[in-house]
Nucleic acid binder design. Structure first.
Lengths: 340, 340
DNA sequence: ATGAAAGCGCTAACAC
DNA sequence: GTGTTAGCGCTTTCAT
């Protein structure tokens, strides 16, 4: 393995200095056309490939952004990552990926790792475990752009891109009410993540706006998964007054709810079911699932644009923007009461 | 924004030299316990965070691996990335992500970008467009580990992790035959990617092993998508002898096939349908879809392990290993002929 | 239009 | 056990 070509090799070959080569390579205007051409040719001939590490060390900027998500296995996060990378690569940035796996410890390590790698900024969605957010404060302290999406936290004063989750909860509930359902249950999580609280608030507000009582027995706090959905539905079916519709914390949980209901011959829309997230499968299951679309692609693109905006400011935190996307109601069979 | 602390600041504070600090920080044994402790404390006090860029520049290793996939939106790739990152982070490596979006140009740029970022190796699955592979040869020329997974190419002499796609095609076909289907159609792609050719070979071999004729009209070459599936199914339904089962190139295509069949009141398993990939939704659609699992998580983990093995050799290409995982048959309703 | 040289933060070979 | 110093490859200020 022969040593890699550096600008010194090019300089030597042409009997010029490295500064000339560097300028030629970077398209400075103070270089004679002849020199530039010679440099470019020699670079090609010697198979030169720039070492961005060195220029990063000098400039203090790596053209790399860190992205922290719970898991790429969750389609929503994979989609957000997709658009972040797509958008940012066009602006000359690379994406360094880190998964927290819903663990706070991992997340802390992620921030540390990414900062040590000298990323120019971080885009993150928090783990379910995260309550103390001091690791994220470290990013802000360094005056590097930090953008939070979807799962944010009240104690952190950074820009964010979210959907309006109160609206999301409201819209989901209102949709069920509009369809004629009156006793609406809710299977959600007890984690202290803003979005879940907000959806719950939206749910309560919709009930109250439509003069429906809030029934404590109609809310199940647990985890979010197919299994939790089955469990939640089971619990609701055993409650004093059985709900005629159920909102689940996400589409997987909704799937569990549906499975349970099918077993009891209460296949939706007999009992209405709504999810959150609009996973790929939700359109294809039977009955297909009404849900709230969280605009993953748009969210990723907005995060990327926000980063690009912040990164060119001397003080990125001078004016903190919060972008709130509107949740989209996706009406499907599982809430189509008239066809019950 | 105050300047970041370096080992020089720590050295000055303690009246020692940077080498001492460096040694203490890196746990060299030639440092007195007292000094080490003092350094560690001061580092903490000054909020020191190492600049890995600098050490990478010095050492020539970045502890970063590049991963190139068509798109994180495809669940299979997202899963592979998931395990790669999980496995590699434990070994102290970071993952730099690049999506080709099935475009050769992007893929070429990806390799270039990652090499310029001085990654220690690359794990990649090729775009559908890729026929010329010289950009990948550049990685090998640099003697950096290159590991290809799932979508490989005959012209590239690098380690790979794949599933046995001939077997996959064979197993899928044989399963249908075992279920009693006799006229088996195939909706696949015309792209020159090894895995698709191999599945097709497996399909033909299974037919011949079971004394079934290979009927040219029963094979549709097109794209892979829900739409292509509908189209392919439509074409097969119009053929002289309508097939009683259809294998689709992937689960999305299978979904399209199923939709078309449902419209014609030929809902599987009336006509049997098999997919490839075992996407999340495949278990939840109606009828749920028999498919071939490609062991995404295992594949990612194997890629990561292969990289770790190669990276510690002086000549990583001394002995090129090809890991071939067995495809897993996932039997579900869509091929359950006895329940038709 | 080009050259000389300092320095980004860290490591390591070589002294003492 | 600790210090000195020369780079890693590149950018950039200051000269010429």
């Amino acid at each position: 393995m022969k040593k890699k070509t550096t600008i010194y090799d090019i300089a030597k070959e042409l009997n010029v200095t490295v500064s000339t080569v560097s300028r030629a390579l970077n398209g400075f205007s103070t270089i004679s056309e002849a020199t530039r051409k010679a440099v470019l040719e020699t670079a090609k001939k010697l198979n030169y490939s720039p070492n961005k590490l060195a220029s990063s060390l000098k400039s203090g900027r790596t053209q790399t952004i860190g992205v922290i998500v719970p898991s790429t296995q969750v389609h929503f996060f994979a989609s957000v990552i997709h658009s972040i990378e797509q958008t940012l690569k066009n602006a000359g940035y690379r994406v360094l990926l880190y998964q927290s796996n819903e663990s706070l410890e991992n997340e802390i390590n992620g921030v540390k790792t990414l900062l040590e790698a000298q990323v120019d900024g971080i885009i993150a969605s928090m783990s379910l475990e995260t309550e103390n957010v001091s690791h994220f404060q470290d990013v802000i302290k360094q005056q590097k752009p930090l953008i939070l999406f979807d799962r944010t936290h009240k104690n952190i004063n950074a820009p964010s891109v979210t959907i309006n989750d109160t609206d999301a909860g409201y819209i989901a509930t209102k949709h069920l009410i509009d369809q004629g359902y009156r006793n609406i249950g809710f299977v959600t999580t007890n984690h202290q993540i803003k979005i879940f609280n907000e959806r719950f608030e939206g749910y309560k507000k919709a009930l109250s706006d439509h003069n429906l009582p809030y029934v404590e027995d109609h809310v199940v706090f647990g985890g979010l998964s197919i299994k939790d959905g089955r469990f939640g539905a089971g619990k609701l079916l055993r409650s004093a007054k059985v709900p005629d519709a159920i909102i689940a914390g996400d589409d997987f949980t909704a799937l569990g709810v549906i499975k349970k209901l099918k077993e009891q011959d209460l296949t939706p829309p007999k009992i209405g079911v709504m999810g959150f997230a609009n996973e790929t499968f939700s359109a294809f299951i039977t009955p297909n699932l009404s849900t709230i679309d969280q605009q993953a692609n748009k969210m990723g693109a907005e995060c990327a644009k926000m980063f690009l905006k912040m990164v060119k400011k001397k003080n990125p935190y001078e004016k903190i923007e919060h972008i709130i996307l509107e949740p989209l109601l996706v009406e499907r069979q599982s809430t189509n009461k008239n066809n019950a």
